[in-house]
Design a protein around this nucleic acid. Sequence first.
DNA 1: GTGAAAGCGCTAACAT
DNA 2: ATGTTAGCGCTTTCAC
Lengths: 353, 353
Amino acid sequence: MVGSCVMRAMARGEKRPVTVRTIAEHVGVSTAAVSTVLANRHEERRLAPATVEKIRQAVRDLGYVPNVAGRRLRAHDPGVRHIDLGILTTYEAPLFLVSRALRQVQRMADARTGPGRRFSVSIGMYHAGRLREMPGLLDASRCNGVIVTNTLPEDDAFLASVTLPYAVVVLGRRIANYCCVIETPGESGRRAAEILLAARREHFVVLTPALLTQSTAERAEAFAALVLERTGRPVTRVIAGGFTPANAADAMRAHLAAGRGCDALYAVTDSLALGAYQAIKDGNRRIPRDVAVVGVGDHEHADFFDPPLTCVGPANDAVVEHVVTWLFHLMNHRRVKPAEVHVAPSVVMRAST
Amino acid sequence: MVGSCVMRAMARGEKRPVTVRTIAEHVGVSTAAVSTVLANRHEERRLAPATVEKIRQAVRDLGYVPNVAGRRLRAHDPGVRHIDLGILTTYEAPLFLVSRALRQVQRMADARTGPGRRFSVSIGMYHAGRLREMPGLLDASRCNGVIVTNTLPEDDAFLASVTLPYAVVVLGRRIANYCCVIETPGESGRRAAEILLAARREHFVVLTPALLTQSTAERAEAFAALVLERTGRPVTRVIAGGFTPANAADAMRAHLAAGRGCDALYAVTDSLALGAYQAIKDGNRRIPRDVAVVGVGDHEHADFFDPPLTCVGPANDAVVEHVVTWLFHLMNHRRVKPAEVHVAPSVVMRAST
DNA sequence: GTGAAAGCGCTAACAT
DNA sequence: ATGTTAGCGCTTTCAC
């Protein structure tokens, strides 16, 4: 007999799914035989070579794909609790952005691992703007707890419209009814402006990607607002086509070539700053003498840029510690009021200013 | 009645696992009620607030953790096949090393996604040297196919000792009986040596981390061998404590401070090259005039180092394309002879030589 | 307002 | 040499 779900699926005109059972019926053997072959245990079970071959053929012909959920449920050892933690990020964002969160999750997980308690940590990928398509997000069937990051506004809207029945912490975004950890709004941009204002510069430029996230937008706005307030002059906005250093270099080269001034640059991500460095140096300008540069500190190697990059940005270690602590807390006591934690930016003065 | 597995687990002295059923019995309700509360659907099911509270309390008290495999199996829509792909890497290796593989997997997966066919791509983390502890690796209960990378020798030995009954491709390592894609052995080191030899240098140095992987070891050896053969002089080896630019900078600073010469440097990873840059410049030496530097091309931003880094290393896009094509091929036709694919290194001449 | 029961896909123990 | 079957943990339908 076939399950009602399947009946419904078939009624909708869908193909019947291929399971071990489909294979078994197709070949005329039992599901056990199929399973044995799939696990390469046919030798020890002494299956007839001909049978094995027929099963293998059917597996290929029918395009069988094992259902890992079934396997996992079956294989599951009741003596050990298994906890799956995910960091959800986009294909589009640079991977290193989640490095710190990953390391912190690892530390917490390791500290809590014991006999009867194991963690799996993974980075789950989604397409920016299409978080809603992520399997298992709504029904909690993939992870026991997740950190969501690098969302676009569409994703934020989607999250705001649903209630996920498990532990979720949002990193670097503000979304209603979620636990969010973000940098103090506007503070980064203001501190960056103060540093450059203190250097008594004239032509302030902010370098951003074309697609702004919540945080990059806030940084740029707060920066421009404070500079305008203090100097009475508007900030020039240079827009890079994408997020890479190459995009930034192109944009800055164009800006400089056009003869529009720049002696104080705020780049809203470090990758952009790196590209700007090249454009600035190629234009025979010196950093910081001719152009002072402030970045954000999201790149692991900002200290090894030449000159080392002054950064004002999320105190990532602090942010990430909040996020992960909260995640574990949520997993223990499931009903915690969603809230917003602000973390003051950290300022690291280096040679670029 | 309780399953035999559980009986065995309990016989072994282990605690009985906490499931919805445990909660239900503890509170004196049905599993359905518990499930309802866990999904926050108690309103629409009109459960008594008191019952809800009791269930919530029990969930906390007993430390219940949902089994995602059970949920997923249940939630599973027979009309759509779900394929889980994993890139397995270590906490210790820099995350960006898997960026390219990730992007390629994404492309292939996107191209094959359709109605009735969805992919999940994730990066699975393990501790270097402890791949064997990864849950679901042996019983194929997590992924339908994986790319394994950044293994240490212990991990290689473990893999060599087992047969995984699903699609596995090893990236950048040579392991018996697996599908492996690696750079042509020794070729990177030799090409790097040729570039520096052509620049007519005197004091050849190779910079490596203390812990060598298969590929870093081969690069260093082949480099040293060719330099020795051509010049008759041995190559100096500078060993960084770890994999970071800071480690490299320390090691190179010590080397230069000791007055031991260096006018040709081969760094077996780009992060090391970045650190070396700083040490070299701090010593008032110019790149490439005083020291020519060759890196590997594993860092996304090698083109934006100052000066841009000449790289001889795995043609990552080619490697990754092989790996991913192979992975999908293995998933379709499960019995493919394991083999080793060599990819010639790509050479990108930039200003550092 | 709550419970009983079916069944998702899989594998291993036990039958034959 | 192969088949039958129980049951992993969960949610939802249906019955009361």
